[in-house]
Amino acid sequence: MGHVTSLFARKMVAAAGDCVDAPALLARVGIDRNGPWDPKEMIPAPAYYDMLERIAAQVDVTELPLRAGASMRLDEYGALGLAFKAATTLGASYVRIERYARLWTSVVDYELRPDPAGTLFILRRAGARRLGLRLSNEATLASAISIARQVNRTHIAPLEVRFQHAAPKSITAHEDWFGCPVRFDADLDAIVFSAKTLALPNLLGDEGISRYLISHLDSELSQMAVDAPLVDKAKDAIAQALSEGTPKMATIASGLGLSARSFHRRLSEHGMSFKTLTDATRRDLAEGLLRDDQHSLAEIAFLTGFSEQSAFTRAFKRWVGHTPASYRKAHSVR
């Protein structure tokens, strides 16, 4: 299960406006609406998609991803935003997104690829083409244009935008925002840029600042590579401890040979809290057990650290929007 930055969730909820209960939606994915906006705070991608689908059940979401994408600001991306801004050309900016996007999401990869019409900026996101994922893809490509327009005097308009999923009832807002034809049911999720557009100089392009920022981002990527095994080991330890109830951070840290303070710091550097990691582990374990008829619901509740089946049912419904019984019926492997 991948993660995305909490910044995306905050932007989507803000774009939905007063028609939704913003504090409740954010709380469901573990975000305190009144807390600081920290792009390094990560949330599970499935929970993010669930949140978008809850919004879609309440309001018309045709223009939601466009509004959210338009609201993204480079300064909110931290060092990655500064590196995008400091690149000397727009094309060089997108090269940095291609390389360093893993600092903000573990579910999306980008690729710049030559195309007969120019260059494709391709978005790849694994998973079923559910509504939440589709909305997220639209917002992501909209934000890619928004940040490009923030670094250039020229109004950036691509040659074409492509989405793999079906079109909404109207695509007028999409074509107005992107300033070009938007094609749905395509073979890729991508933006097509002309060579002339990617060669445009950025307003604040600076080679010296770029070198410093690239060094910083490379260091962050290296740290992620070091900490990824730690996260995997921590999830395994949490899963093994859940049958005895909700594990304590100090206990898991000790088993990994770390102090509670060091464990907390390293998880924070990876964009996670112990609670977020525990909830993600519980959810992954519950979904896996529910796909197999070997265990009863009461046993699964016990194995995932709940003292009562009713508490497990409430938590699982909060995670995925369905009861454990209905999820099992839909996903059971027979």
Rank of each mutant, 00 (worst) to 15 (best):
A241S: 12
L242E: 14
L242H: 14
L242P: 11
S243E: 12
S243I: 15
E244G: 06
E244R: 14
E244Y: 05
E244S: 12
G245A: 10
G245P: 08
G245Y: 15
G245M: 06
T246C: 06
T246W: 12
T246A: 11
P247Y: 13
P247I: 12
K248Y: 12
M249P: 04
M249C: 06
M249T: 11
A250W: 09
A250I: 12
T251G: 13
T251M: 11
I252W: 07
A253S: 06
G255S: 13
G255Y: 13
G255D: 13
L256W: 13
L256V: 14
L256S: 14
G257E: 10
L258N: 11
A260N: 03
A260F: 06
A260R: 09
R261Y: 04
R261F: 00
S262M: 13
F263D: 00
F263K: 01
F263P: 02
H264M: 01
R265G: 07
R265Y: 15
R266E: 04
L267M: 08
L267C: 02
S268I: 00
E269C: 05
H270G: 09
H270D: 14
H270K: 10
M272K: 02
F274Y: 10
K275F: 04
T276S: 09
T276R: 10
T276W: 08
T276A: 07
L277H: 05
L277R: 02
L277D: 07
T278P: 00
A280F: 05
A280V: 02
A280Y: 01
T281D: 14
T281L: 10
R283T: 07
R283P: 02
R283I: 03
R283V: 02
R283K: 09
L285P: 09
A286E: 11
A286S: 13
G288M: 03
G288T: 07
G288P: 08
L289T: 02
L289Y: 12
L290A: 03
R291N: 03
R291W: 04
D292C: 11
D292F: 08
D292P: 07
D292H: 15
D292R: 08
D293V: 02
D293W: 07
D293T: 01
Q294V: 08
Q294Y: 12
H295Q: 06
H295P: 02
L297D: 11
L297K: 05
L297Y: 13
A298M: 03
A298T: 14
A301I: 04
A301E: 05
A301S: 11
F302C: 02
F302D: 03
F302I: 05
